[in-house]
Amino acid sequence: MARRDHEGDPDAPTANSLVPAASVVVVDGAGRVLLQRRADNGVWALPGGAMNLGESLPDCARRETREETGYDVELTGIVGTYTDPGHVFAYDDGEVRQEFSVCFLARPVGGRIAVSDESTDVRWFAPAEVDDLPMVPSIRRRITDWRGGTGPALR
């Protein structure tokens, strides 16, 4: 199912759902960040997704990272919270989701790189390499917030 991101777009469709979600900045011992190329919109992104009933948000972050990248992670902090009502995701099935996401910081503790049905490519990147990758502004903002290292961002 295709997804279109609308951020600060006055012509964006009106949200009809609000779903808690997690994203994860996974950093290895060399300081590289783990990214996946999303199958639904073709751009690079952090691993992450919607929380399931019966799971905690940290469990969601670990599960989504494992499903989308093949890595098990240990959560080590919070990059920030992202709840901008002007940022919505429009899906082909008619759902228009307002963003509500907590972005965690993590390190890999097991597993190995693998693509999934949600990703077409998974790679480690040096922070400077990320600047030229195609990605939506909200993901770039999370990476910028992590690189800034000033503590959790509240957006």
Rank of each mutant, 00 (worst) to 15 (best):
D5Y: 05
F100Y: 14
S119F: 04
D11Q: 15
P20A: 13
A39F: 01
R112F: 12
D93Q: 07
T120E: 13
F125M: 02
S119V: 03
G94I: 02
D84F: 08
A21I: 01
M135N: 10
D28G: 08
A114T: 07
V19E: 10
A30D: 14
D121A: 12
V96S: 02
P137K: 04
E129G: 08
S101L: 06
T144R: 15
V102Q: 08
A106W: 12
P10R: 12
S23G: 15
Y71S: 04
C103F: 04
V25E: 14
G148W: 07
P127Q: 10
D92P: 01
R4C: 11
L35G: 11
L105F: 08
G29E: 04
P47S: 09
C103A: 06
R147V: 07
V88S: 07
E99H: 05
A15I: 01
R147A: 15
R112E: 04
A61F: 15
F100L: 12
A61E: 05
E118V: 08
S138L: 03
R142E: 06
E118M: 14
A106S: 03
T14R: 06
S17M: 12
R63V: 11
P58R: 07
R140V: 06
V43G: 09
T150M: 06
D28H: 12
A153V: 13
E129P: 01
V25G: 05
A126F: 09
M51D: 06
